[in-house]
Design a protein around this nucleic acid. Structure first.
Lengths: 189, 189, 189, 189
DNA sequence: TATGAATGAGATTTCATTCAT
DNA sequence: TATGAATGAAATCTCATTCAT
């Protein structure tokens, strides 16, 4: 896990906020600098250019999520079903907590191929896939292609958190999503 | 359904291609004009400004999909299950046919709120929701909150078409997705 | 001889004036644009960047001089001595006429090697060398290494025009320089 | 003769090298500092600002040359002719020894008027002029305007050392230049 | 004395948009 | 209707200089 200095963190936080709320080209570096209470030049001390800052923001946000999930999954003594429920809840919590998270994550998921990103995404999907496969082994789940399923799950958490149906209740969504997934993965008999 | 002149169509096609492959701010109007074999000024005869062109591109692409789906659903004499399978197949066909489609749709789905877009998206979700509700009525489906489910379905078709797992087979995906959804929606008994 | 459009010429003239009077980094493109009565962006229509504009200015100035000299030298029916006198007079006239010329030429003569520049300089020296060699053939001159001499001549015209001794009289300088060169090149007997 | 501390010398040497090889505005103080193995702030302990450093570099280089020449000229018992030959040889040795020297000198010689520089240049020209005048008095030379000639001589040494003709031989150049000057200055009879 | 992270004024450059043709 | 040269506001980015350590 990359380490960030205090100032770097402040810049990333500020930029995350701004990139989440406006289109890339509407975010001015001078505004970021001002909001982060640093000089414009300081940004360039930490990030090569605007693109680089943008990617760093997304990457950090995504990494935090993946790390959280990995930690959850690595717990001993919990069943694949519990892990899967955890994944859905952690992901949706992460995104509902801060609109910023959802919007940024959403962009990551669309990112131009490029080693680093591909890897991170694959990491996320890999974690989920592992849980499904573990469940298949224990007989809790049945899935002819866990690779597909592992992509479905983040995608609908994202969809709901970006376009929350009116009057959305977080708990209600988690329950529905878990139920949906568990039914879909339930062994035929 | 809006009608477009030949030149307008050429511009929209070109722009669609470009917006699908690059971020908004990386797409230069001069490039669009050149690629569409029209003068830069001509773009402004058909579209108010860059944003307007962008919206027009997304809107057209999205409308085509929604219209296709609506046509499918309006067929008489087919069951909700058949309709649902059709939705999944039509959507994924639409997106697999042209990468452009998938990428553009993806943008629409993430579009900052804004009346027009909200409406268009709601239209898509509404179509799917209707089918689910119809299925619930006939007893083919069971779903505690069809509104959520109607968002899940486009989201994972999109995810798979933007990030196709290596060696992806279209038919295999459709089969898996249908199966996944049908199991998830199957009445408990 | 390269052709320049009216606007291009206006830009080059303006820029020449400014580059001659100030250090490169003190010349602002916004000032150039303003003084040339064109938009800042227009500069970039004609010149790739600031460096490119600078080089174009120098190159044009230098080319004009070389062309003038070549024309003079190509005259029929004049002796090498007359040609040499012409060279010295043309060069010093060119430089005394406009301080701009002298200063710009001065920079050219120091220019980072680079095909184009090397070639132009070599062209200038080549012209002078030819005249000397012609004179050697006719017996008017004697010179063990015309290649050296052809570099001496522009160098002192330049020196005097950039740092004119107090109360310098142009004609006096030409006379002195010609006399100096002719004596130096005079056959021993 | 100014004295420089060890660190100051290191900075000046480094900067000399860099200013000789690149245009003023391409030389970054951070590069100078790094190459001189001092902190960027340290430069400001020794030099008021970038201009000041630049001037110091040129000034030191020029002073060394002028001092060398003065020492040579002040020798007793050598004729003006010998002095002149010495001047040409010392100057060209100085410049051929290190390309840096030639380039820097070249800058000095082109420096925008400014008291200090005017004085330094005048000092160089003055030395040469004295020798010529001494020669005129002894009847060894003849020159209607030694002030001009004293500018010619440094200028062509400079020209040759900055743009050495292919396959240049130092000794050959000195011999040619001396011969050229001596013929030009030879009394008519 | 020595440092180099931080600064921000101000430079270069871009590109959506206009408008004369 | 069609064009693309011209524009200049506004963006990104640089780098000499400062200053807390």
């Amino acid at each position: 896990m990359k380490e960030y200095s205090e100032k770097e963190t402040r810049i990333l936080d500020t930029a995350a906020e701004m990139f989440a709320n406006q289109a890339f080209h509407k975010v001015l570096l001078s505004d970021v600098a001002h909001a982060a209470r640093v000089g414009k030049g300081t940004l360039y001390l930490y990030f090569k250019n605007k693109d680089d800052l943008y990617f760093a923001v997304l990457f950090r946000g995504f990494s935090i999520l993946v790390d959280t999930l990995r930690q959850h999954i690595n717990q001993k003594n919990i069943s694949p079903t519990e892990k899967m429920e955890g994944i859905i809840r952690e992901m949706s919590t992460y995104m509902f907590m801060k609109a910023t998270n959802a919007h940024l994550l959403s962009r990551v998921m669309h990112f131009p191929e490029g080693g680093e990103w591909q890897d991170k995404r694959t990491e996320l999907w890999g974690l989920i896939q592992e849980v499904i496969e573990e469940g298949v082994e224990t007989g809790e789940f049945e899935d002819s292609c866990p690779r597909f399923t592992s992509q479905y799950i983040p995608s609908f958490v994202r969809s709901i958190s970006i376009f929350p149906p009116e009057g959305l209740n977080h708990e209600e969504f988690c329950a529905h999503a878990c139920n949906f997934v568990f039914k879909a993965l339930k062994p035929d008999r």
